[in-house]
Simulated scan of single mutants.
Amino acid sequence: MIPADLSRAVVHAVRRAVEAGELDGPVPARVVVERTRPGGVGEYASPVALRMGKGAEAARVLAGALVLEPGIETVDVTGPGFLNFTLAPLSGAELVRDVRARGERYGCVRPRSGAVGGDREQVVRSAVARIREGQGLDGAGAGGGPRVAPVARRDGDVRARYGAAAAVWAMLAVPAKETPSFTDALLVQGEENEVFRVRYAHARARALTRNARDLGFHAEPGDIAEPGLADAPCAPALLRALADHPLALEAAAHHGAPERLARHLVAVADALLDFQHQVLPLGDEKPSAAHRARLALAEAAGAVLAGGLALLGMDAPAFL
């Protein structure tokens, strides 16, 4: 089970409880499930019982049903009625196959549309619209979307100074109500520049495919636990980041918050950049099933980065 499946499982549990008379009230069309904050219980949490106005008693009813779901290891109720989940270990092969099958639309249910242009308000609102449309929602959202603070006058023409990609990233990387920050770090092609790291990680994924082709092998998804993959210690972190992608998209759409997607893309990029060195054979080593599986995982991460950048209104270069 991946987090997006967990969200759907919670909706179904609420519906079953209402139909059985265990709970009353409307069944939500969507349920927000987010990563547990540091120090919290489990891996993911949802306030659905609180949002329904039912609290801990309703949460315990739902917990009793959800703990029986395949893929969920534990369900705990904390505080006034938060549901906290720990999922069973991921099947790497299934996740990678799913991402590769969907490509840049992984986590989306509807084609994207729209273009970047104009001032910060236009950039933010068009990104929100694309993200929401990708989740099958009305593009504008309730109330027409968030209040958007403009770029400070002192920053001048940020597109001309920093380039379109860096300027758009800076506009979207902080909540809409906050004034974006523009520094010379946006001009640096290095670790301190988040937008460079994300776009560079995508370029590295494409380069790995080209290098593998030169070595005579191609990607083939395989289980992360199979012999040969256990010595790729960075793979689990990258798998978890890919599994979280639909959840990040859903949260960004629900809150009208492109910065949530931007933060997630940084996490995917950093995990991929750590993992990239474990993909290709070294020295006289011959390509094996493990290398093919690692390449499939790297290509899946590249697709996620490309799709996420497109939602933000940015390109994903093959060379950087």
Score class of each variant (00 low, 15 high):
A207M: 10
E121N: 09
Q122A: 14
S288V: 12
G190S: 05
L50D: 02
A173S: 14
P233H: 10
M52K: 00
L187D: 04
P317A: 01
P80G: 15
G141Q: 12
G302H: 05
P80Y: 11
N193L: 06
V123A: 15
L90Y: 08
E34H: 00
E121R: 12
V41W: 12
L309S: 07
D119V: 08
F85E: 03
G71V: 15
V174C: 08
D5C: 01
P221A: 11
A241C: 10
G40V: 01
T179Y: 12
V61G: 10
G117E: 01
E121I: 11
A303H: 13
L305N: 00
G256E: 02
A164Q: 02
G136Y: 07
E250T: 11
T78D: 06
L265M: 06
V128I: 06
L137Y: 04
L239A: 02
A271K: 01
R154P: 01
A63W: 11
A318F: 09
R197A: 11
G79L: 08
G143W: 10
G308T: 05
V33Y: 08
G144T: 14
H245D: 00
T183K: 00
V67L: 10
L297S: 05
D270A: 07
A252T: 02
D184V: 05
G143P: 11
L229R: 03
P233Y: 15
P28M: 13
A142H: 14
G118K: 06
I224P: 00
E133A: 15
V11M: 08
E94C: 09
S181E: 13
D231W: 12
A173Y: 07
L172P: 00
A253V: 09
P89K: 07
F182A: 09
L238Q: 01
R263I: 03
D270M: 11
A166Q: 01
A262T: 08
H245N: 04
A9M: 08
P3S: 14
R206W: 12
G190I: 05
K286F: 08
G114H: 03
E226P: 00
L295C: 10
E133M: 04
P246M: 09
G107C: 02
